[in-house]
Amino acid sequence: MALRFGIEEEYFVVDPVSREVVPGAGAVVRRASAALGERTSTELVEFLAEAKTPPCDDLDKLGEQVHAMRAAMAAAAAAEGVRLAATGTPVLGEVVPAPIAAGARYAESRAVYRGLDDEQSICSCHVHVEMPDRERAVQVSNHLRPWLPTLLALTANSPYWAGRDTGHACWRVLAWSRWPVAGPPPFFESAAHYDDLVGTLLGCGALMDTGTIFWDVRPSARLPTVEIRLADVATTAADATVFAALVRALVQVSSDAVEAGVRAPDPSPETLRAAYWLAARDGLTGRGMDVRTGRPAGFGALAGDLLAHVLPALREAGDLDVVTRGVRRLLAGGTGAERQRRAYRRRGRLTDVVDAALLHDR
């Protein structure tokens, strides 16, 4: 039986005229909650609104939920006189210092992380995949590590930051990497090893609490899932669901390997960091690194390797055709970052980039 999975997405609140980011998430979320209930929420920064799907057991259901979720959020934003844009970083607007939401937790975050909070206007996509227990989630995390740079290259959707082209395909991951506990997770021998390290980080003050463990893969603190958190929010619902299906297949293959007693590869932190940077700079068009071998490899070729690696799980779940077409579409037509730049080149207007990323209430 296929593993249950779900998606969390963050969106920028933008002014419909200037297309600049504006602080209006609270009103949007309050209105959207009539349709989504607790599946919508605010974030640290008032530019951001979040929504999530319920757990789903097949890709068609997940796709329906993502479309419905985005439509509900778009309708709520329109009713409040704003719009929502699905980009990993803010394309236009004055974003530093960011407007921090009210509340005791966010005030504590400001006290601990200080200037980091002021610059964290970023939108990501998190995929949760159900796990039988935390031990399995931690061991699966080990098996996912070699594939994280390739997943990052596939989902790059943040080339612009506040009116400028950063030259990178995924600027969000570089901004995010400054946090003390972020990026690719370490290799863990067990859940106890994970808990020991988290305890050390809590004890020294590098973590405010377990909710601020921002590794790109982690066992969820609230749900019986492994959470994959490295992707930019996708421009389209179709891209989001393809990514979720690919992640679920990778988790399934990894879980099967854990059950069979296969030890995960353990690429060094240095090679993972370098591969991340290369993926963030150039996306799928770049020549990156295969961290399993330490040798140069194009991320397009590595995407093909990933598809081959997860093919049995995709076939078993009935997702093979959808995911194969989706990955081929990205390889042929470009990632979100490439599409953003094409939107800009048509008339040289960043407002066109925002317009191409707007959610619609349909």
Rank of each mutant, 00 (worst) to 15 (best):
F187I: 13
D239W: 01
Y194D: 01
T166H: 06
A237K: 03
G199I: 02
W176T: 10
A206S: 15
C170A: 11
T166I: 08
L230K: 11
G261F: 11
A234F: 03
L250T: 13
P219N: 08
T200S: 08
L174Q: 14
A237P: 14
R172V: 12
I228W: 14
E189Q: 08
W176K: 07
V181L: 04
A191D: 14
D232C: 09
S190R: 15
L246K: 05
S255V: 01
T241M: 00
L174N: 06
G183K: 13
F243I: 14
P186Y: 07
C170I: 00
A182V: 03
C204A: 00
A175L: 12
A234W: 02
P267R: 09
R222C: 01
W179P: 10
S177P: 01
S190D: 10
G205L: 12
V226I: 15
L223N: 13
D232K: 04
A240W: 05
A206D: 15
A175T: 13
V262N: 06
D256V: 00
A275F: 07
A274H: 07
V181Y: 05
W179H: 13
G211E: 06
E189A: 14
S268M: 10
R229M: 06
L246N: 06
V262P: 02
P269E: 08
C170H: 00
D232V: 04
H193G: 12
Q252D: 10
T235D: 06
R229G: 05
W179C: 06
T212S: 14
T235V: 09
T200L: 15
A240L: 05
W179E: 14
D232I: 02
E227R: 02
T241I: 08
D232H: 04
E227I: 05
V247E: 03
T235H: 06
M208G: 04
S220D: 10
T241D: 03
V242M: 08
G183H: 13
Y276I: 09
Y276T: 13
T225Y: 09
D266C: 07
A257H: 14
W215Y: 13
P265E: 14
L272G: 01
T166S: 15
T212L: 03
T225F: 04
L201N: 07
I228H: 11
A191V: 04
S268P: 05
A191W: 00
D195F: 00
A275Y: 09
P186A: 09
E259C: 02
P219I: 09
L202Y: 10
T225D: 09
P180T: 06
V253T: 15
G261H: 11
R263T: 13
H193A: 15
P269W: 13
V247C: 03
V262E: 15
G167E: 04
L207W: 06
F214Q: 06
D209G: 14
I213A: 07
M208L: 15
V226T: 14
G199D: 10
R263P: 00
G211F: 00
A260T: 04
F187L: 06
T225Q: 04
P185K: 00
Q252S: 12
L202T: 08
A175Y: 05
E259Y: 01
A244D: 09
L197D: 02
L250N: 06
